[in-house]
Nucleic acid binder design. Structure first.
Lengths: 244, 244
DNA sequence: TCAATTATTGACTAAGAGTCAAAGTATGTC
DNA sequence: GACATACTTTGACTCTTAGTCAATAATTGA
Protein backbone atom coordinates (compact mmCIF):
# COMPACT_ATOMS: atom_id res chain seq x y z
CA UNK A 1 0.00 0.00 0.00
CA UNK A 2 3.02 2.25 0.48
CA UNK A 3 3.86 1.73 -3.17
CA UNK A 4 0.30 2.43 -4.15
CA UNK A 5 0.35 5.81 -2.50
CA UNK A 6 3.79 6.58 -3.90
CA UNK A 7 2.47 5.93 -7.39
CA UNK A 8 -0.54 7.99 -6.68
CA UNK A 9 1.64 10.84 -5.43
CA UNK A 10 3.75 10.66 -8.56
CA UNK A 11 0.65 10.68 -10.72
CA UNK A 12 -0.71 13.76 -8.97
CA UNK A 13 2.68 15.41 -9.12
CA UNK A 14 2.79 14.90 -12.89
CA UNK A 15 -0.74 16.24 -13.24
CA UNK A 16 0.37 19.36 -11.41
CA UNK A 17 3.39 19.65 -13.69
CA UNK A 18 1.14 19.57 -16.75
CA UNK A 19 -0.80 22.51 -15.36
CA UNK A 20 2.41 24.33 -14.46
CA UNK A 21 3.56 23.91 -18.05
CA UNK A 22 0.22 24.92 -19.55
CA UNK A 23 -0.43 28.06 -17.51
CA UNK A 24 2.47 30.25 -18.68
CA UNK A 25 1.91 29.14 -22.27
CA UNK A 26 -1.74 30.22 -22.19
CA UNK A 27 -0.97 33.41 -20.30
CA UNK A 28 1.97 34.56 -22.38
CA UNK A 29 1.34 33.06 -25.80
CA UNK A 30 -2.39 32.46 -25.82
CA UNK A 31 -4.79 29.62 -26.29
CA UNK A 32 -3.63 28.70 -29.80
CA UNK A 33 -0.04 28.26 -28.69
CA UNK A 34 -1.12 25.61 -26.21
CA UNK A 35 -0.89 22.26 -27.94
CA UNK A 36 -0.64 18.74 -26.65
CA UNK A 37 2.59 17.88 -28.52
CA UNK A 38 4.29 20.78 -26.90
CA UNK A 39 3.04 19.94 -23.42
CA UNK A 40 4.19 16.33 -23.88
CA UNK A 41 7.61 17.50 -25.02
CA UNK A 42 8.12 19.82 -22.06
CA UNK A 43 6.77 17.19 -19.70
CA UNK A 44 9.23 14.67 -21.20
CA UNK A 45 6.48 12.11 -21.58
CA UNK A 46 4.58 11.13 -24.68
CA UNK A 47 1.34 12.64 -25.84
CA UNK A 48 -0.57 9.51 -24.87
CA UNK A 49 0.46 9.97 -21.26
CA UNK A 50 -0.81 13.52 -21.24
CA UNK A 51 -4.11 12.21 -22.58
CA UNK A 52 -4.20 9.75 -19.66
CA UNK A 53 -4.43 12.75 -17.36
CA UNK A 54 -6.72 14.99 -19.39
CA UNK A 55 -9.10 13.65 -22.01
CA UNK A 56 -8.78 16.82 -24.07
CA UNK A 57 -7.14 20.19 -24.28
CA UNK A 58 -10.21 21.96 -22.96
CA UNK A 59 -10.10 19.93 -19.76
CA UNK A 60 -6.68 21.45 -19.03
CA UNK A 61 -8.12 24.94 -19.38
CA UNK A 62 -10.91 24.08 -16.98
CA UNK A 63 -8.41 22.59 -14.51
CA UNK A 64 -6.45 25.85 -14.65
CA UNK A 65 -9.59 27.87 -13.96
CA UNK A 66 -10.41 25.66 -10.99
CA UNK A 67 -6.93 26.13 -9.61
CA UNK A 68 -7.09 29.92 -9.65
CA UNK A 69 -10.60 29.83 -8.28
CA UNK A 70 -9.27 27.84 -5.32
CA UNK A 71 -6.61 30.50 -4.77
CA UNK A 72 -9.33 33.11 -4.83
CA UNK A 73 -11.50 31.21 -2.38
CA UNK A 74 -8.57 30.85 -0.01
CA UNK A 75 -7.98 34.60 -0.12
CA UNK A 76 -11.69 35.28 0.42
CA UNK A 77 -11.71 32.94 3.41
CA UNK A 78 -8.78 34.75 4.93
CA UNK A 79 -10.52 38.09 4.40
CA UNK A 80 -13.78 36.80 5.88
CA UNK A 81 -11.94 36.01 9.11
CA UNK A 82 -11.73 39.73 9.80
CA UNK A 83 -13.76 40.41 12.92
CA UNK A 84 -15.94 43.46 12.71
CA UNK A 85 -19.21 44.89 11.51
CA UNK A 86 -20.75 43.43 8.39
CA UNK A 87 -19.68 46.17 6.02
CA UNK A 88 -16.15 46.15 7.38
CA UNK A 89 -15.98 42.46 6.59
CA UNK A 90 -17.34 43.12 3.09
CA UNK A 91 -14.63 45.74 2.67
CA UNK A 92 -12.11 43.03 3.61
CA UNK A 93 -13.56 40.82 0.83
CA UNK A 94 -13.29 43.74 -1.58
CA UNK A 95 -9.62 44.08 -0.77
CA UNK A 96 -9.04 40.33 -1.21
CA UNK A 97 -10.81 40.54 -4.57
CA UNK A 98 -8.63 43.38 -5.79
CA UNK A 99 -5.43 41.75 -4.55
CA UNK A 100 -6.43 38.54 -6.30
CA UNK A 101 -7.21 40.35 -9.55
CA UNK A 102 -3.87 42.16 -9.49
CA UNK A 103 -1.88 39.06 -8.59
CA UNK A 104 -3.59 36.85 -11.18
CA UNK A 105 -4.93 39.07 -13.96
CA UNK A 106 -4.69 36.05 -16.23
CA UNK A 107 -7.42 34.35 -14.19
CA UNK A 108 -9.98 36.49 -15.97
CA UNK A 109 -8.60 35.51 -19.34
CA UNK A 110 -8.77 31.81 -18.46
CA UNK A 111 -12.21 32.32 -16.94
CA UNK A 112 -13.41 33.97 -20.16
CA UNK A 113 -11.89 31.15 -22.19
CA UNK A 114 -13.49 28.38 -20.19
CA UNK A 115 -16.95 29.92 -20.58
CA UNK A 116 -16.78 29.85 -24.38
CA UNK A 117 -19.50 27.28 -25.13
CA UNK A 118 -17.38 25.34 -27.62
CA UNK A 119 -14.72 24.90 -24.93
CA UNK A 120 -17.07 24.35 -21.99
CA UNK A 121 -19.08 21.70 -23.83
CA UNK A 122 -16.02 19.51 -24.35
CA UNK A 123 -15.19 19.27 -20.66
CA UNK A 124 -16.28 16.55 -18.26
CA UNK A 125 -19.29 17.00 -16.00
CA UNK A 126 -17.08 16.07 -13.04
CA UNK A 127 -14.74 19.01 -13.48
CA UNK A 128 -17.62 21.33 -14.34
CA UNK A 129 -19.15 20.41 -10.98
CA UNK A 130 -15.82 21.16 -9.33
CA UNK A 131 -15.79 24.68 -10.76
CA UNK A 132 -19.40 25.15 -9.73
CA UNK A 133 -18.61 23.99 -6.20
CA UNK A 134 -15.73 26.47 -6.04
CA UNK A 135 -18.01 29.25 -7.23
CA UNK A 136 -20.71 28.28 -4.77
CA UNK A 137 -18.22 28.22 -1.93
CA UNK A 138 -16.86 31.66 -2.86
CA UNK A 139 -20.33 33.15 -3.27
CA UNK A 140 -21.66 31.63 -0.03
CA UNK A 141 -18.79 33.18 1.85
CA UNK A 142 -19.74 36.60 0.56
CA UNK A 143 -23.50 36.17 0.83
CA UNK A 144 -22.91 35.01 4.42
CA UNK A 145 -21.66 38.50 5.16
CA UNK A 146 -24.75 40.00 3.55
CA UNK A 147 -26.87 37.71 5.73
CA UNK A 148 -24.96 38.97 8.76
CA UNK A 149 -25.70 42.51 7.64
CA UNK A 150 -29.40 41.82 7.19
CA UNK A 151 -29.52 40.10 10.59
CA UNK A 152 -27.79 43.04 12.28
CA UNK A 153 -30.08 45.46 10.42
CA UNK A 154 -27.02 47.14 8.88
CA UNK A 155 -28.78 46.85 5.54
CA UNK A 156 -32.33 46.28 4.44
CA UNK A 157 -32.59 44.76 0.99
CA UNK A 158 -35.27 45.98 -1.42
CA UNK A 159 -38.39 43.79 -1.40
CA UNK A 160 -37.86 40.61 -3.41
CA UNK A 161 -34.08 40.80 -3.39
CA UNK A 162 -32.12 37.97 -1.79
CA UNK A 163 -28.55 38.35 -0.46
CA UNK A 164 -27.23 36.22 -3.33
CA UNK A 165 -28.55 38.74 -5.84
CA UNK A 166 -26.68 41.56 -4.13
CA UNK A 167 -23.51 39.45 -4.33
CA UNK A 168 -24.28 38.85 -8.00
CA UNK A 169 -24.04 42.61 -8.46
CA UNK A 170 -20.65 42.90 -6.78
CA UNK A 171 -19.45 39.88 -8.71
CA UNK A 172 -20.69 41.26 -12.05
CA UNK A 173 -18.98 44.57 -11.46
CA UNK A 174 -15.64 43.04 -10.52
CA UNK A 175 -15.76 40.30 -13.15
CA UNK A 176 -16.74 42.77 -15.86
CA UNK A 177 -14.18 45.37 -14.88
CA UNK A 178 -11.24 43.03 -14.31
CA UNK A 179 -12.00 41.12 -17.52
CA UNK A 180 -11.99 44.31 -19.50
CA UNK A 181 -8.87 45.57 -17.78
CA UNK A 182 -7.18 42.30 -18.74
CA UNK A 183 -8.26 42.24 -22.38
CA UNK A 184 -9.41 45.64 -23.62
CA UNK A 185 -6.41 47.76 -24.54
CA UNK A 186 -8.70 50.58 -25.63
CA UNK A 187 -9.58 51.65 -22.08
CA UNK A 188 -6.77 54.19 -21.55
CA UNK A 189 -7.74 55.89 -24.82
CA UNK A 190 -11.31 56.10 -23.50
CA UNK A 191 -10.13 57.98 -20.42
CA UNK A 192 -10.16 55.06 -17.99
CA UNK A 193 -6.78 55.51 -16.41
CA UNK A 194 -7.02 53.92 -13.00
CA UNK A 195 -9.48 51.07 -13.41
CA UNK A 196 -8.82 49.46 -10.04
CA UNK A 197 -9.44 52.70 -8.18
CA UNK A 198 -12.63 53.28 -10.15
CA UNK A 199 -13.92 49.81 -9.23
CA UNK A 200 -13.21 50.48 -5.56
CA UNK A 201 -15.19 53.70 -5.73
CA UNK A 202 -18.10 52.12 -7.60
CA UNK A 203 -18.43 49.29 -5.10
CA UNK A 204 -18.44 51.70 -2.16
CA UNK A 205 -21.03 53.93 -3.76
CA UNK A 206 -23.18 50.97 -4.72
CA UNK A 207 -23.22 49.73 -1.12
CA UNK A 208 -23.93 53.29 0.01
CA UNK A 209 -26.84 53.30 -2.43
CA UNK A 210 -28.23 50.21 -0.71
CA UNK A 211 -27.78 52.05 2.60
CA UNK A 212 -25.39 49.51 4.07
CA UNK A 213 -24.36 50.96 7.45
CA UNK A 214 -22.03 52.42 8.40
CA UNK A 215 -21.98 54.40 5.15
CA UNK A 216 -18.70 55.30 3.53
CA UNK A 217 -18.90 58.81 4.99
CA UNK A 218 -19.66 57.52 8.47
CA UNK A 219 -16.64 55.29 8.83
CA UNK A 220 -12.95 55.14 7.99
CA UNK A 221 -12.86 52.21 5.60
CA UNK A 222 -9.35 53.07 4.51
CA UNK A 223 -8.33 52.20 8.05
CA UNK A 224 -10.14 48.86 7.70
CA UNK A 225 -8.28 48.20 4.45
CA UNK A 226 -5.03 49.02 6.19
CA UNK A 227 -5.80 46.62 9.04
CA UNK A 228 -6.89 43.76 6.80
CA UNK A 229 -3.83 44.26 4.67
CA UNK A 230 -1.36 44.16 7.53
CA UNK A 231 -3.19 41.45 9.47
CA UNK A 232 -4.24 39.07 6.72
CA UNK A 233 -2.39 39.93 3.51
CA UNK A 234 1.05 41.26 4.42
CA UNK A 235 2.99 39.49 1.66
CA UNK A 236 0.36 39.98 -1.04
CA UNK A 237 0.01 43.66 -0.28
CA UNK A 238 3.76 44.18 -0.30
CA UNK A 239 3.94 42.45 -3.67
CA UNK A 240 1.15 44.50 -5.24
CA UNK A 241 1.54 47.91 -3.68
CA UNK A 242 5.31 48.07 -3.61
CA UNK A 243 5.31 50.84 -6.20
CA UNK A 244 2.24 52.66 -4.99
CA UNK B 1 -18.93 53.57 -63.50
CA UNK B 2 -22.41 52.14 -63.11
CA UNK B 3 -20.94 48.68 -63.59
CA UNK B 4 -18.18 49.41 -61.11
CA UNK B 5 -20.65 50.27 -58.38
CA UNK B 6 -22.82 47.29 -59.24
CA UNK B 7 -19.83 45.03 -58.71
CA UNK B 8 -19.04 46.78 -55.49
CA UNK B 9 -22.61 46.33 -54.31
CA UNK B 10 -22.49 42.65 -55.12
CA UNK B 11 -19.21 42.32 -53.26
CA UNK B 12 -20.62 44.01 -50.17
CA UNK B 13 -23.77 41.93 -50.43
CA UNK B 14 -21.72 38.75 -50.44
CA UNK B 15 -19.70 39.97 -47.46
CA UNK B 16 -22.94 40.50 -45.59
CA UNK B 17 -24.09 37.02 -46.56
CA UNK B 18 -20.92 35.52 -45.10
CA UNK B 19 -21.68 37.21 -41.79
CA UNK B 20 -25.31 36.10 -41.96
CA UNK B 21 -24.14 32.53 -42.44
CA UNK B 22 -21.51 32.72 -39.70
CA UNK B 23 -23.61 34.27 -36.96
CA UNK B 24 -26.17 31.51 -36.39
CA UNK B 25 -23.43 28.88 -36.59
CA UNK B 26 -21.41 30.58 -33.85
CA UNK B 27 -24.48 31.30 -31.75
CA UNK B 28 -26.09 27.90 -31.98
CA UNK B 29 -23.18 25.52 -32.51
CA UNK B 30 -20.24 27.43 -31.12
CA UNK B 31 -16.89 28.67 -32.32
CA UNK B 32 -15.52 25.26 -33.23
CA UNK B 33 -18.40 24.49 -35.54
CA UNK B 34 -17.56 27.58 -37.57
CA UNK B 35 -15.22 26.52 -40.36
CA UNK B 36 -14.31 28.04 -43.65
CA UNK B 37 -15.24 25.01 -45.75
CA UNK B 38 -18.71 25.09 -44.33
CA UNK B 39 -19.13 28.80 -44.88
CA UNK B 40 -17.94 28.40 -48.46
CA UNK B 41 -20.38 25.56 -49.02
CA UNK B 42 -23.38 27.48 -47.67
CA UNK B 43 -22.29 30.58 -49.57
CA UNK B 44 -22.07 28.48 -52.75
CA UNK B 45 -18.65 29.91 -53.54
CA UNK B 46 -15.26 28.33 -53.03
CA UNK B 47 -13.11 28.69 -49.96
CA UNK B 48 -10.68 30.96 -51.81
CA UNK B 49 -13.46 33.48 -52.40
CA UNK B 50 -14.32 33.57 -48.71
CA UNK B 51 -10.64 34.26 -48.03
CA UNK B 52 -10.83 37.18 -50.45
CA UNK B 53 -13.28 38.79 -48.07
CA UNK B 54 -11.74 37.84 -44.74
CA UNK B 55 -8.06 36.98 -44.36
CA UNK B 56 -8.85 34.57 -41.54
CA UNK B 57 -11.57 33.04 -39.46
CA UNK B 58 -10.91 35.39 -36.56
CA UNK B 59 -11.60 38.40 -38.75
CA UNK B 60 -15.14 37.11 -39.26
CA UNK B 61 -15.67 36.96 -35.50
CA UNK B 62 -14.45 40.54 -35.17
CA UNK B 63 -16.73 41.64 -38.02
CA UNK B 64 -19.67 40.03 -36.19
CA UNK B 65 -18.79 41.85 -32.98
CA UNK B 66 -18.59 45.16 -34.85
CA UNK B 67 -22.00 44.54 -36.38
CA UNK B 68 -23.75 43.97 -33.07
CA UNK B 69 -21.90 46.89 -31.53
CA UNK B 70 -23.34 49.08 -34.29
CA UNK B 71 -26.82 47.82 -33.42
CA UNK B 72 -26.16 48.68 -29.82
CA UNK B 73 -24.91 52.15 -30.66
CA UNK B 74 -27.98 52.79 -32.76
CA UNK B 75 -30.21 51.81 -29.84
CA UNK B 76 -28.20 53.97 -27.44
CA UNK B 77 -28.53 56.93 -29.82
CA UNK B 78 -32.26 56.47 -29.95
CA UNK B 79 -32.41 56.35 -26.14
CA UNK B 80 -30.20 59.42 -25.79
CA UNK B 81 -32.75 61.41 -27.82
CA UNK B 82 -35.08 61.30 -24.82
CA UNK B 83 -35.55 64.86 -23.62
CA UNK B 84 -35.41 65.27 -19.87
CA UNK B 85 -33.19 65.60 -16.85
CA UNK B 86 -29.80 63.94 -16.93
CA UNK B 87 -30.73 60.93 -14.81
CA UNK B 88 -33.90 60.36 -16.80
CA UNK B 89 -31.82 60.19 -19.94
CA UNK B 90 -29.41 57.79 -18.23
CA UNK B 91 -32.41 55.66 -17.32
CA UNK B 92 -33.33 55.65 -21.02
CA UNK B 93 -29.83 54.35 -21.82
CA UNK B 94 -30.24 51.68 -19.16
CA UNK B 95 -33.41 50.51 -20.82
CA UNK B 96 -31.75 50.46 -24.25
CA UNK B 97 -28.92 48.43 -22.75
CA UNK B 98 -31.24 45.85 -21.28
CA UNK B 99 -33.33 45.59 -24.44
CA UNK B 100 -30.17 45.11 -26.44
CA UNK B 101 -28.88 42.42 -24.08
CA UNK B 102 -32.17 40.55 -24.24
CA UNK B 103 -32.50 40.83 -28.00
CA UNK B 104 -28.90 39.82 -28.69
CA UNK B 105 -27.64 37.75 -25.76
CA UNK B 106 -25.18 36.19 -28.18
CA UNK B 107 -23.43 39.54 -28.50
CA UNK B 108 -21.77 38.93 -25.16
CA UNK B 109 -20.57 35.53 -26.26
CA UNK B 110 -19.07 36.97 -29.46
CA UNK B 111 -17.63 39.88 -27.47
CA UNK B 112 -15.98 37.46 -25.04
CA UNK B 113 -14.65 35.43 -27.96
CA UNK B 114 -13.15 38.36 -29.78
CA UNK B 115 -11.24 39.48 -26.67
CA UNK B 116 -9.43 36.16 -26.33
CA UNK B 117 -5.86 37.25 -27.05
CA UNK B 118 -5.16 34.40 -29.47
CA UNK B 119 -8.18 35.47 -31.52
CA UNK B 120 -7.70 39.22 -31.19
CA UNK B 121 -4.04 39.07 -32.22
CA UNK B 122 -4.89 37.46 -35.55
CA UNK B 123 -7.21 40.25 -36.64
CA UNK B 124 -6.28 43.29 -38.72
CA UNK B 125 -5.50 46.62 -37.10
CA UNK B 126 -8.08 48.21 -39.41
CA UNK B 127 -10.99 46.21 -38.02
CA UNK B 128 -9.66 46.52 -34.46
CA UNK B 129 -9.81 50.29 -34.91
CA UNK B 130 -13.37 49.94 -36.17
CA UNK B 131 -14.42 48.15 -32.99
CA UNK B 132 -12.60 50.73 -30.89
CA UNK B 133 -14.37 53.54 -32.76
CA UNK B 134 -17.71 51.87 -32.10
CA UNK B 135 -16.89 51.54 -28.42
CA UNK B 136 -15.72 55.12 -28.21
CA UNK B 137 -18.89 56.32 -29.88
CA UNK B 138 -21.08 54.32 -27.51
CA UNK B 139 -19.16 55.43 -24.44
CA UNK B 140 -19.10 59.10 -25.48
CA UNK B 141 -22.84 59.04 -25.84
CA UNK B 142 -23.21 57.86 -22.27
CA UNK B 143 -20.47 60.02 -20.78
CA UNK B 144 -22.13 62.97 -22.53
CA UNK B 145 -25.10 62.42 -20.27
CA UNK B 146 -22.84 62.34 -17.22
CA UNK B 147 -21.31 65.61 -18.39
CA UNK B 148 -24.81 67.06 -18.67
CA UNK B 149 -25.48 65.89 -15.12
CA UNK B 150 -22.29 67.45 -13.78
CA UNK B 151 -23.07 70.69 -15.63
CA UNK B 152 -26.59 70.80 -14.22
CA UNK B 153 -25.24 69.94 -10.73
CA UNK B 154 -27.45 66.83 -10.66
CA UNK B 155 -24.36 64.90 -9.60
CA UNK B 156 -21.03 65.81 -8.15
CA UNK B 157 -18.36 63.25 -8.88
CA UNK B 158 -15.84 62.31 -6.18
CA UNK B 159 -12.55 64.21 -6.46
CA UNK B 160 -10.36 62.74 -9.19
CA UNK B 161 -13.13 60.86 -10.95
CA UNK B 162 -13.94 61.73 -14.56
CA UNK B 163 -17.32 61.04 -16.19
CA UNK B 164 -15.76 58.29 -18.32
CA UNK B 165 -14.82 56.38 -15.19
CA UNK B 166 -18.38 56.45 -13.94
CA UNK B 167 -19.49 55.07 -17.30
CA UNK B 168 -16.80 52.41 -16.96
CA UNK B 169 -18.59 51.27 -13.82
CA UNK B 170 -21.98 51.00 -15.50
CA UNK B 171 -20.36 49.26 -18.43
CA UNK B 172 -18.49 46.79 -16.19
CA UNK B 173 -21.64 45.91 -14.31
CA UNK B 174 -23.72 45.31 -17.43
CA UNK B 175 -20.96 43.57 -19.37
CA UNK B 176 -20.12 41.33 -16.41
CA UNK B 177 -23.71 40.48 -15.60
CA UNK B 178 -24.92 39.91 -19.15
CA UNK B 179 -21.83 37.84 -20.00
CA UNK B 180 -22.41 35.62 -17.00
CA UNK B 181 -26.12 35.35 -17.73
CA UNK B 182 -25.21 34.23 -21.25
CA UNK B 183 -22.58 31.67 -20.30
CA UNK B 184 -22.82 30.61 -16.64
CA UNK B 185 -25.53 28.01 -16.22
CA UNK B 186 -24.74 27.75 -12.52
CA UNK B 187 -26.44 31.04 -11.63
CA UNK B 188 -29.96 29.71 -10.93
CA UNK B 189 -28.44 27.12 -8.57
CA UNK B 190 -26.69 29.97 -6.77
CA UNK B 191 -29.99 31.71 -6.15
CA UNK B 192 -29.76 34.28 -8.94
CA UNK B 193 -33.18 33.89 -10.46
CA UNK B 194 -33.95 37.15 -12.15
CA UNK B 195 -30.60 38.51 -13.29
CA UNK B 196 -31.98 41.32 -15.43
CA UNK B 197 -34.07 42.68 -12.60
CA UNK B 198 -31.07 42.48 -10.24
CA UNK B 199 -28.92 44.47 -12.67
CA UNK B 200 -31.61 47.14 -12.92
CA UNK B 201 -31.71 47.45 -9.15
CA UNK B 202 -27.92 47.54 -8.79
CA UNK B 203 -27.56 50.30 -11.36
CA UNK B 204 -30.20 52.42 -9.67
CA UNK B 205 -28.67 51.97 -6.26
CA UNK B 206 -25.21 52.70 -7.57
CA UNK B 207 -26.39 55.99 -9.09
CA UNK B 208 -28.20 56.73 -5.84
CA UNK B 209 -24.92 56.08 -4.04
CA UNK B 210 -23.29 58.74 -6.20
CA UNK B 211 -26.17 61.04 -5.30
CA UNK B 212 -27.35 61.54 -8.86
CA UNK B 213 -30.50 63.70 -8.56
CA UNK B 214 -33.36 63.11 -8.61
CA UNK B 215 -32.74 59.99 -6.52
CA UNK B 216 -34.68 56.84 -7.20
CA UNK B 217 -37.01 57.61 -4.29
CA UNK B 218 -37.59 61.17 -5.46
CA UNK B 219 -38.81 60.35 -8.95
CA UNK B 220 -40.93 57.86 -10.82
CA UNK B 221 -38.33 56.24 -13.06
CA UNK B 222 -40.71 53.44 -13.95
CA UNK B 223 -42.78 56.09 -15.67
CA UNK B 224 -39.68 57.23 -17.57
CA UNK B 225 -39.03 53.64 -18.65
CA UNK B 226 -42.62 53.40 -19.81
CA UNK B 227 -42.32 56.60 -21.83
CA UNK B 228 -39.00 55.68 -23.46
CA UNK B 229 -40.35 52.28 -24.28
CA UNK B 230 -43.49 53.52 -25.98
CA UNK B 231 -41.84 56.52 -27.63
CA UNK B 232 -38.51 55.08 -28.77
CA UNK B 233 -38.64 51.28 -28.57
CA UNK B 234 -42.19 50.14 -29.29
CA UNK B 235 -41.31 47.12 -31.42
CA UNK B 236 -38.32 46.02 -29.33
CA UNK B 237 -40.27 46.25 -26.10
CA UNK B 238 -43.17 44.29 -27.56
CA UNK B 239 -40.74 41.61 -28.70
CA UNK B 240 -38.99 41.31 -25.33
CA UNK B 241 -41.73 41.91 -22.82
CA UNK B 242 -44.53 40.09 -24.63
CA UNK B 243 -44.58 37.42 -21.94
CA UNK B 244 -43.86 39.67 -18.96
C1' DT C 1 11.24 -16.75 -12.63
C1' DC C 2 7.32 -15.64 -15.07
C1' DA C 3 2.42 -14.61 -16.06
C1' DA C 4 -0.77 -10.93 -15.43
C1' DT C 5 -1.69 -6.35 -14.99
C1' DT C 6 -0.83 -1.66 -15.77
C1' DA C 7 1.54 2.32 -17.95
C1' DT C 8 3.76 4.40 -21.84
C1' DT C 9 4.62 5.15 -26.49
C1' DG C 10 4.48 7.36 -31.04
C1' DA C 11 2.96 6.22 -35.71
C1' DC C 12 -1.40 6.98 -37.54
C1' DT C 13 -6.01 9.11 -38.84
C1' DA C 14 -8.98 12.93 -39.35
C1' DA C 15 -10.17 17.62 -39.71
C1' DG C 16 -9.65 21.96 -40.80
C1' DA C 17 -6.80 26.49 -41.70
C1' DG C 18 -4.70 28.80 -45.13
C1' DT C 19 -2.09 28.99 -50.08
C1' DC C 20 -1.59 29.63 -54.87
C1' DA C 21 -1.07 28.29 -59.71
C1' DA C 22 -4.27 27.42 -63.05
C1' DA C 23 -8.77 28.13 -65.15
C1' DG C 24 -12.44 31.17 -65.90
C1' DT C 25 -14.68 35.69 -66.64
C1' DA C 26 -15.13 40.55 -67.69
C1' DT C 27 -13.56 44.72 -69.83
C1' DG C 28 -11.63 47.69 -73.23
C1' DT C 29 -9.64 48.32 -77.94
C1' DC C 30 -9.31 47.89 -82.77
C1' DG D 1 -16.26 39.98 -83.55
C1' DA D 2 -11.38 38.98 -82.28
C1' DC D 3 -8.05 39.54 -79.11
C1' DA D 4 -5.21 41.28 -75.14
C1' DT D 5 -5.25 42.54 -70.55
C1' DA D 6 -6.90 42.69 -65.90
C1' DC D 7 -9.47 40.82 -62.49
C1' DT D 8 -12.03 36.85 -60.08
C1' DT D 9 -12.78 32.25 -58.74
C1' DT D 10 -11.39 27.74 -57.94
C1' DG D 11 -10.15 23.52 -55.36
C1' DA D 12 -6.24 20.48 -54.95
C1' DC D 13 -2.51 20.92 -51.97
C1' DT D 14 0.36 21.64 -47.69
C1' DC D 15 0.74 22.02 -42.94
C1' DT D 16 -0.54 21.85 -38.25
C1' DT D 17 -2.61 19.68 -34.52
C1' DA D 18 -6.25 17.04 -31.90
C1' DG D 19 -7.12 12.66 -30.62
C1' DT D 20 -6.63 7.14 -31.11
C1' DC D 21 -4.90 2.72 -30.27
C1' DA D 22 -2.13 -1.43 -31.15
C1' DA D 23 2.36 -2.50 -29.81
C1' DT D 24 5.88 -2.23 -26.33
C1' DA D 25 7.74 -1.62 -21.77
C1' DA D 26 7.53 -1.66 -16.86
C1' DT D 27 5.65 -3.21 -12.54
C1' DT D 28 3.53 -6.36 -9.53
C1' DG D 29 2.52 -10.47 -7.06
C1' DA D 30 2.74 -15.45 -6.72
Amino acid sequence: MVNESRKEREYLYREQRILDIARPVIVQEGYHALNMNRIAEQLEYSKGTVYNHFPCKEEIILALAIQTLEQRTEMFQRAARFVGRSRERMQAIGLACELFARMFPEHFVVEQLVRIPSIWDKTSATRQQQLYRGETCCLSLVSGIVHQAVGAKDISLPPGMVPEELVFGLWSMTFGAYSMLATNSNLPALGIVNGYEAVRSHLRHMLDGYGWRPLDAEHDYDEVVHQVMTQHFPTEAAQIFQNA
